[in-house]
């Protein structure tokens, strides 16, 4: 299982749909994608993690890096995730306080705060 990435835009938001496993081997690909989006001027990102089967601290690090990048441009990075095993990792690392986590892409796109 590798990492799959696809992007689309909804209004001023860019949805990054992630599938597969985000670990030490695949996380650099996600990082490249996020860096590329920010470099191209997409500062409001929604990372849809519903298709993610595995996430470790390397993946968390990449998401934190993405958040820092968009914040440097007054942007936002929202996550979409309903999977308990993935949410648990955000919880034990305290990152639920850092990332807005939504239950659907629609909800994340509509969110403004």
């Amino acid at each position: 299982m590798d990492l799959s990435l696809s992007t689309r835009t909804v209004g001023d938001r860019t949805i990054v749909e992630v599938g597969g496993e985000i670990d030490v081997y695949t996380a650099p690909k996600l990082r490249e994608q996020l860096v590329e989006l920010v470099n191209d001027g997409s500062y409001h990102l929604v990372v849809d993690m519903e298709g993610v089967d595995f996430l470790d601290s390397t993946g968390l690090g990449v998401l934190v890096g993405g958040l820092k990048r968009v914040r440097a441009h007054e942007g936002s990075l929202r996550l979409v995730c309903n999977q308990e095993r993935i949410l648990k990792i955000f919880r034990i690392t305290g990152l639920t306080k850092v990332f807005p986590i939504h239950s659907s892409v629609d909800e994340a796109v509509a969110a403004t705060d």
Partner: peptide
């Protein structure tokens, strides 16, 4: 392996 200073402090794995 993700060589960027702002992406995790490398010991987040131990925290997990």
């Amino acid at each position: 392996p993700v060589p960027e200073e702002d992406e995790g402090d490398g010991e987040m794995g131990l925290a997990v």
